[in-house]
Amino acid sequence: MATLNDYLLASGLLFTVGFAGVLLRRNIIIIFMSLELMLNAANLSLVGFSRFHVRAGLPDYNAQVLVFFIITVAAAEVAVGLAVIVALYRAKQTTHIEDLNSLKF
């Protein structure tokens, strides 16, 4: 049987993959997808803690409600973020972050 540590390690590795994507990729849409990976890694560790924190024979459902809220907020974030990317593309004709440097010091 898998232990809580195995789930936490899987979650942490998924977070690391997403983090690597944010650091290494130059396409803003791929960076956005990597952000989603990191968000889902946090959800996985929350569900793991929920299952391993048993009270009165039931998992801790408060954590699952929190995951539900995170998924909802993430969906709203994707909608707004992609609208921002479309507006940015319309202004600059690119999604390559090295061409989007007007805020750079």
């Binding site: 849409i29 569900v47 998992p59 699952q64 995951v67 539900f68 998924i71 969906a75």
Partner: peptide
């Protein structure tokens, strides 16, 4: 599938519907 292995069936279904469905179609 990992959510379902943790007995969180509702979240597993929501994950497929919201992420693999709606969010990915948007992307």
């Amino acid at each position: 599938a990992l959510y379902i292995s943790l007995d969180a069936f509702f979240l597993g279904v929501i994950q497929i519907l919201v992420y693999a469905g709606a969010v990915m179609v948007l992307f």
